[in-house]
Nucleic acid binder design. Sequence first.
DNA 1: CCTATAGTTGAACATTTGTTCAATTGTTTG
DNA 2: CAAACAATTGAACAAATGTTCAACTATAGG
Lengths: 112, 112
Amino acid sequence: MSVELDGTQRRMLAEMFALLGDPSRLGIVLSCRHQRRSVSDIAEASGLSMSLVSHHLRLLRTAELLKVEREGRYAFYSIADAHVEHMLDDMVDHVLHANGASRALSTQPGGT
Amino acid sequence: MSVELDGTQRRMLAEMFALLGDPSRLGIVLSCRHQRRSVSDIAEASGLSMSLVSHHLRLLRTAELLKVEREGRYAFYSIADAHVEHMLDDMVDHVLHANGASRALSTQPGGT
DNA sequence: CCTATAGTTGAACATTTGTTCAATTGTTTG
DNA sequence: CAAACAATTGAACAAATGTTCAACTATAGG
């Protein structure tokens, strides 16, 4: 085990991290986790303007983190595939279980 | 299953993603994965100036992704804890196994 | 004590990037 | 066809961020 990544893979990974590294965008992605959502839906849920949401969605679409299904005048977004979904589950899981070691401040288990 | 994150947790996760989202920084972190490394060591391995590496190390240290052990005039950096290490293993794993679904172009298994 | 090595720090700069606003495309319905 | 709604797009702007350079601290050795 403990394999290394080549330059291209590192850049791919970094790009993905960077995309997920913006709070607005992470919120958008997480809101599409278990159901597909229209753009206005996402906008309302996240408190962001539809324009801004659309800009972010384009990036997430291009990076193949989200996919879109168009129906009439609506566009429904959801996680691109099982691979991405699994990865997100992992990361969410990690944050939820990050109680002991790494959190120096606010070490309070079971915080809502 | 399928738990949601609150605002604070989302921001924590986003911050972590953002830190790992810079190619230089990701390289630095990955180079500290399985052995501790001195700053000059990291600088040489990554092709970055020692000053820049030091700046990045401060951020990674502050976010508790890396930890430092000082010995004499040397400073050795390594992954902060098992939790972070596991998370990185996961992500590296994901990138390595991202053959089928999400890769639209260059779908060639086993590419170096 | 003086020089060399290892690392950190802060200011300054250039670039990137998130956000807003207005205009535009496409679709449905009166 | 016109009006309303859903979404996309591009230009422009402000703020954040990566990088460089020079100065500085600290430890080791002659």
